[in-house]
Design a protein around this nucleic acid. Structure first.
Lengths: 207, 207
DNA sequence: TGAAAAATGCTAATTAATTCACAAATATAG
DNA sequence: CTATATTTGTGAATTAATTAGCATTTTTCA
């Protein structure tokens, strides 16, 4: 399989989401041009993205929706049964834990860690065990490679501990700066930055 | 001012965040090479990005931290005093409303809309007025250009109504598909996709 | 069954983004 | 005050990503 570029990789989840929706709507077969309109990405880009995984379509026919879904689902890790942990069960952390479209979309959040586990565990909406952050080394699930970081401070120390434990990917919701240890990957989800970016763009439109 | 590329635009909030942190740490002056190490972006990319705004630095000296902060803050809309609205005051919506690093970082959330405003308003953590979604046309603040969408369904209809009201930018937290009306911009914040992407990358590392 | 129409997948061309390399400007040390 | 060491800002070169164009394969319809 050819090297898949960062840009292409970002689009795969978009395709999967769209295909699921189309499937729900009863669509069995889809053309790259239809999908293009749906997700607002040029059809030729879509075909090239797909071709990096394999020959997924048929000439003169298009793509089979459910086949594509199962291929992308597999590629994107739904079958890896990834074990995720979440650190910091505040409001945002709880919102993520409760996210309902969650199951088997990208593995499963197995447990969470917080400074006040008693308090968090008593909340009815928290549906996984919450351990004290001091127990991280002890309670982290075997083979856990991805952690979701929702703490307001102290990120660096946590990241270093996670690194020692073999965690390779961080989904970062903190706005704190930290140095990423060698060999780790992170992905920032920053609402404030997203809005700033949008404000800038909207104001550029106005000029 | 030269056309600012999408890629550069995404980095501006990163710079601003880093500069604020450096300023807090007492730094008055910074080199592109120092900042490069801090944010893990090549120094030459940083200088190029900066140069699109103007000649912000001094040769042989570097950049004045506070000056940079005020320039970026202005560029990124902190002084525009952007009026934002939020639609869908569920768990995630509440988390966003309560985000404390919020004020004057990207305008201000002025009010929110929900299907059950009475219930939301009674929650102590919700600190802006919540109106019924039916009152959108009536209560939307004058000059509002950006809306944060946190509803689980019915996005298309809301987006179309917002478009009619002159809203130009959507920060989209829904996973629903909708067609973006001509002239609008959106920015997706999709936790599930982010994790999927990361799972894919981590699993690529393992091979 | 055979010819026309349709749609993929791939190569080549184009466009966008990053990085190099160095001239010009400033700071600093003697 | 002068010489040297720094560091920015920017054309030019490179690398990455997107898009166009078309050969090939499959479907469809007479």
């Amino acid at each position: 399989m050819a090297e898949i570029s960062k840009a292409t990789l970002k689009r795969y989840p978009v395709y999967l989401k769209a295909l699921r929706k189309l499937s729900e709507e009863g669509k069995k077969r889809v053309l790259s041009s239809e999908l293009a309109e749906y997700v607002d990405i040029k059809s030729t880009t879509i075909r090239r993205d797909f071709s990096l995984i394999g020959q997924l379509g048929k000439q003169g026919y298009g793509y089979d929706v459910n086949e594509l879904i199962s291929i992308f689902a597999k590629e994107l890790g739904e079958d890896y049964d990834e074990k995720l942990i979440l650190i910091g069960v505040g409001r945002l952390g709880t919102a993520i834990l409760n996210y309902n479209n969650w199951n088997h979309v990208a593995g499963e959040i197995v447990c969470a860690f917080d400074l006040k586990p008693e308090k968090r565990n008593s909340e009815p909406k928290v549906n996984v065990p919450v351990y004290h952050i001091d127990e991280l080394e002890e309670k982290i699930p075997e083979g856990c490679e991805i952690a979701i970081l929702c703490i307001p401070s102290g990120a660096q120390q946590i990241v270093d501990r996670l690194h020692k434990l073999g965690v390779k990917g961080i989904v970062n919701f903190t706005r704190e700066h930290f140095v990423l240890p060698e060999g780790m990957i992170k992905s920032d989800v920053d609402v404030v930055s997203t809005i700033q970016e949008l404000v800038f763009e909207v104001n550029s439109l106005n000029k």
